[in-house]
Design a protein around this nucleic acid. Structure first.
Lengths: 202, 202
DNA sequence: ACCTGAACACCGTTCAAGT
DNA sequence: ACCTGAACACCGTTCAAGT
């Protein structure tokens, strides 16, 4: 399992095949089937192993800081295993580690005074952000060299002025510095947590 | 392209292979390579074809109703092609249709009075929700028959009380009716749009 | 320009066989 | 209990050949 995680971290999850993993372990491909039912079983095992590393916040802080702590902790762990979002989405049913994590999140909300219905809404709103990741529509932390960026701007400026304006502002530090994914994640997280506080008290 | 979309709608995107698609078209697999560079080119073509169907709202309503309209329209189209979220995430670079869509969203925000920085934040917060989909952590619109549900509750109730409480409330209409994905999506969307309005005026 | 067929280097998985 | 090797039914893609 550890070997598979290491291999996925290095080469990406697409590079994981029974044959390659076996080779990585100095063994024949079919030997893996004694330890794992099939490939999807392997992938859930890897996913569960990572999820179970996310610390569940136990201290009795208020729900907002607890949730914030957990989401940021989750993010820092998942950043080290960038393939996890993919494998999480591939799973049909959540494993025990995932269930424990979800139970902790719901528990924080319920103990914080959310009704079941409110907590349910909150889960839908937080979506995968409680797990520390957001599938961005596209990478805007781009590193284009200035000349190709200028070329693109000239080509697309007429048809997509707003997109180009933002891309330019974000990539080479115009008004905004280059897009800071960490800061952007925290901003979105706090935006949601503040909204949930308002939802609860309304 | 249309044939590929039809096949993916019917059998899922995993069932799409050059060989199967060719067979579906009554042709040999290698013939496809005259119309498409490779498989990933095929998948982006399919994705782009669907994205380009999403109507860009042109009427001069305020930004909130415009964005709401677009997100709901996007959702209704993507619901008919459930594989699109997957293929969107697989793409390295956004195609023209995706760019046009993003430009429209940013344009609505900018014309609605958002600064570039605010619009940038808004994009990160909306995430894939502007495209009408959210990857839920897990399906909670489950349809378990009552007895296995009761069994699960007994088994997990001790270790995961909060998760079980919510699952029971959501699945067989306790306090909440069974989880209505449409309503839940609209709720989350409005939650975000209201928050963005507050962000803008602060 | 479009289609074909054979071929190559991969997959996941089974099964019978070994220790 | 754990590992192996051959085999099967698949992949995406190349290349030379046809019309």
């Amino acid at each position: 399992m550890a070997a598979a995680i290491e291999l996925a971290d290095r080469d990406g999850v697409d590079a994981i095949s029974m044959r390659k993993l076996a080779q990585h372990l100095g063994v024949e491909a079919m030997s893996l089937y004694t330890h794992v039912r099939n490939k999807s079983d392997l992938l859930s095992g890897m996913t569960e192993a990572v999820i179970s590393q996310i610390p569940i916040s136990i201290d009795d802080a208020d729900w907002k800081t607890s949730l914030r702590q957990m989401a940021l902790a989750a993010r820092s762990i998942i950043l080290r295993h960038p393939w996890v979002p993919t494998t999480v989405e591939m799973q049909a049913a959540p494993g025990p580690a995932m269930l424990t994590y979800a139970n902790a999140v719901i528990g924080i909300l319920r103990e914080g005074g959310f009704s079941v219905a409110q907590a349910h809404h909150a889960l839908h709103i937080l979506g995968s952000r409680v797990l520390g990741f957001t599938r961005d529509l596209f990478d805007d932390s781009g590193d284009l060299d200035p000349e190709t960026a200028a070329g693109l701007a000239r080509e697309l400026g007429a048809s997509h002025p707003y997109a180009v304006e933002m891309a330019l502002a974000v990539t080479h530090g115009g008004a905004l510095g280059r897009c800071d994914d960490d800061a952007e994640f925290e901003f979105a997280l706090d935006f949601i947590l503040d909204g949930l506080a308002r939802l609860q008290s309304s």
